[in-house]
Nucleic acid binder design. Structure first.
Lengths: 338, 338
DNA sequence: TGTATTTTTGCATACGTATGCAAAAACTGA
DNA sequence: TCAGTTTTTGCATACGTATGCAAAAATACA
């Protein structure tokens, strides 16, 4: 209490009411769209509010309405440009509908931040997760509280959790197809983590499509979605007796690392000695330092889909989880030979 | 109202009190550190709370205490890895002291997001801004509300706005010194925006130090802190009659772009034909695709300083703005010749 | 055991906004 | 002008938690 240090405390609806000559409820209604209030009264009130520099107290509003216009965003790794991009998109798209983001970053990719349960304390309208998995306990908590969960770019076996993702299986197929068409012989895959369904689906698409052309036993290494992990994976793959001439990576971020290792440590010419394909099409992929061929996963569309789900579930008070797949396409650049 | 759709509404302190056999105030005190309550009672209450899955309603708490434990973070460009890094650091350091981040991304670097004023509606404890400038009106609003503003990596002439930054002037000096020692002859500077004090200080340090060795008329181009802007700046500088053999860039992000253009469009060998130095030392700078020499600006330390300021101003209810400079150092890598 | 002291408890109220309800005001049509 | 209808207003109360205050309980001391 008593934080009204030097300055006077912020004006409230009552203050505005006094100045405008009305009641507190009138002021409240002036700010409520579709409320029963005369146009003239509303104008008088807004004028008075302006004079006082009145700003509605969203905490109080939230308490009264039981919704906060805040959405919790859990993101494991902001340094991965793909997720930074998604966050930026979410932020600007949410702003347009008057909602805000409460940011949670978690230390690990797979663990749910235990702090996340505290997000519910803020009466958030929804929980959007990227690169992190919802734990069953968290999902239960959210279900109890009627807070929808949407996972972006990660699958979930938990009932009631909605998901949004790119065309993961097709990404693998298309990458395989392109590499086959361009006469590659020895294929390899750099996976994310073993628990990532996204990585698994990309892998399945890739492996299955190659199998159709009779190519079996494609080596796989795990990059753990990190830069150093992918570097190790690359070292392992590239030092094998039968060195691959085509590497498909489960993310651009890992592909960058693989590119670095191939060029620098193995002195390989990309794309003549080895071609590399990623997934995501992050902005850096088009920078000429990487110039990476990749299957795109448009951050803007993913964000849009996630928000649609949230809006729909909140408005319909629906319990049914939704699942949306967002289209991508192969972007051919200089990291694969023609 | 009436959002208690399918499930029952979330348990409140009163529910817990009923189960534990006490009063609502007792429950409140059980959660208040240092409150007057018997150890046994507290345990009994916490037990009951656990059974019900009770989570304190932070909106209500905030309304009662007039502080939210929420800090507004305004960031213009999450895609710039330096700022993403700072955001990540802030997030994890704030988590440890039980505070959370409300994220605001603004479209432009220089403009303050008008939405930011609405942040105050959430009764945020502070406003941390990176890569964006506080407008005088915003500063006034914050002052009235007793909300401290801290700008990271941007100066401010507005009284009452605290700042945290790296050793900008020294960065320029050190870069100049290193390039002189390594026998470069033609120097150039890629600035951020004209309004950025950070860029200006780096420039001053660079130019002044060169002037001491009799070097005058160093060409300057503006990269606007964007990838494409820096590419244009690089094109302009590198196509001059007297091509520079040493370029200092006001940020790593821009240096990456300059590197790309030098290598790809001008077919220059880096570092033999042109050396490039950045500022920040973002993670990518060490990736071998760039391998950039740079003056570091540690995100962790910047975040820590900003949080210190916030904590101190909030605890002392102090009005006095604070200014902290964080040390950096030159990290020599492969983009400059030996 | 009884009194003085300290600790713990519950009551009542405050925080700022939203909203059902009834009263008041503004219209409508003849 | 007046009764009937619609719109607008204010009152009262609710949302969930924090806290000053006085009453109650526990403890200390003689």
């Amino acid at each position: 209490m008593s934080k009204k240090i030097g300055g006077r405390r912020a004006p409230t609806e009552s203050d505005v009411a006094k100045l405008a000559g009305g009641s507190q409820s009138a002021v409240s209604r002036a700010y409520t769209k579709g409320a029963s209030i005369a146009q003239k009264t509303r104008e008088k009130i807004l004028q008075a509010a302006k004079e006082l520099g009145y700003q509605p107290n969203l905490m109080a509003r939230s308490l009264a309405t039981n919704q906060s216009n805040i959405i919790a965003l859990a993101i494991s790794n902001l340094e991965n440009p793909f997720y930074a991009n998604v966050a930026q998109q979410l932020s600007s798209q949410l702003r347009e509908i008057g909602k805000h983001i409460l940011l949670f970053t978690s230390p690990s990719d797979d663990e749910t931040d235990p702090m996340l349960e505290r997000a519910l304390s803020y009466q958030v309208d929804a929980l959007i997760m990227t690169a992190t998995l919802a734990s069953p306990e968290l999902a239960l908590q959210c279900k109890k509280a009627g807070v929808p969960i949407v996972q972006i770019n990660r699958g979930s076996k938990i009932a009631g959790v909605s998901t949004v993702w790119g065309e993961n299986h097709r990404a693998g197929e298309v990458a395989a197809e392109h590499l086959l068409k361009t006469k590659h012989k020895n294929f390899a895959f750099v996976a994310g983590s073993k628990t990532s369904s996204t990585s698994q689906m990309r892998q399945d698409g890739f492996i299955e499509h190659l199998a159709k052309s009779g190519i079996k036993n494609v080596p796989i290494a795990y990059g753990e979605y990190s830069f150093s992990g992918a570097a190790n994976a690359a070292r392992k793959l590239l030092s094998a007796k039968n060195r691959p001439d085509a590497i498909f990576c489960a993310s651009d971020y890992m592909a960058f690392s693989v590119l670095d290792v191939a060029k620098r440590e193995f002195n390989l010419n990309v794309p003549n000695e080895v071609s590399i394909i990623g997934v995501d099409d992050v902005p850096e992929a088009s920078h000429s330092a990487y110039d990476l061929t990749t299957f795109s996963q448009p951050a803007g569309a993913l964000a849009k889909a996630a928000i649609e789900i949230v809006e729909q579930m909140n408005s319909e008070s629906s319990r049914r989880a939704m699942h949306i797949e967002v289209e991508g396409q192969l972007i051919i650049r200089g990291s694969t030979k023609a």
